[in-house]
Write a protein that binds this DNA or RNA. Structure first.
Lengths: 148, 148
DNA sequence: GAGGAAGTTTACGTTAACGTAAAGTGGTTT
DNA sequence: AAACCACTTTACGTTAACGTAAACTTCCTC
């Protein structure tokens, strides 16, 4: 009872930090299906969820076409015969494979980032040491020289 | 002594399953720097590693321009002054943030895939049950009818 | 020496995912 | 009623990352 049920285009745009142009484009491509009041779009909570999925899909490397496919397929699956269900299961397997690849990529990337960071910090420490040596060579601790 | 040190363009292409066109494009954009024998490209193990990084970068949502930036920056960092090193560290932080986002996305995606799979399997089980009921209604276990 | 395989350059074409005007609609605030 | 929103449609422009075709060189083989 306490949750918002409908959203304007600009509400969704600012919430998810995308342009209204993008949202209209997603509708145009059949990914969102807002109703209308006059000519103004009214988005449901379902649209909101789908927008979230679209954006996450993008971050995970899925094209809009792929995301639309899974949306459509899922819609069909809901009232689904056996063939549809089995197809959905096989697609879920593909997604899982994709995810496993991503996990592996991420693990490797993390390793590299860590070794690089270590390398950087070592190099910085080296520089600091040389700096201090240099300072103690040319300058004694004390008050600065008074006017040359 | 036992590892290959140089590679032709088609060797790399087939190893990483990309086209030679792509590899030439990556060179064109400054991501790879093969030497030449005559006009033929000769790729080093460094190039090979970078190609691998390019492809992983793509899978993780980095553009070629971004990947090139980190390559270049890392080259500079090797002979680096303090400023370069600090910049590299801040970029490493950005990458880490990116990775954290990916991890979160992946975790959510996995959850969804699991619930969807469960849903599919339930629906399939329902269908199987109905099928069996139907079969036992219209058909008794026994030998088939002989020629109508 | 004719052909074939693997390499090259040059250059125009393509697709996805929007960006960016331009021009119009509908409500409300002054 | 004038001005100002937020929203709309239509339509051409843009960028990244290659695809694809054409015409050429080298080297090897038959």
């Amino acid at each position: 009872m306490t949750e918002k049920q409908t959203f304007s285009i600009s509400e969704l745009a600012s919430e998810f930090d995308v342009t209204t142009r993008s949202i209209r484009f997603y509708e145009d491509q059949g990914l969102l299906k807002p109703t209308r009041r006059g000519q103004t779009r009214i988005f449901s909570t379902t649209d909101r969820v789908r927008l979230k999925l679209i954006l996450r899909g993008k971050r995970m490397g899925f094209s809009l076409a792929e995301t639309k496919e899974t949306f459509d397929l899922w819609d069909e699956t809901l009232s689904g015969n056996e063939k549809q269900l089995l197809k959905m299961l096989s697609i879920l397997d593909e997604k899982r494979a994709h995810i496993e690849q991503q996990k592996a990529d991420i693990a490797m990337a993390e390793l590299e980032i860590n070794t690089r960071e270590a390398h950087c910090r070592e190099a910085l420490a080296e520089l600091q040491k040389k700096k201090q040596q240099h300072e103690s060579t040319i300058e004694q601790p004390g008050h600065p020289a008074e006017q040359s």
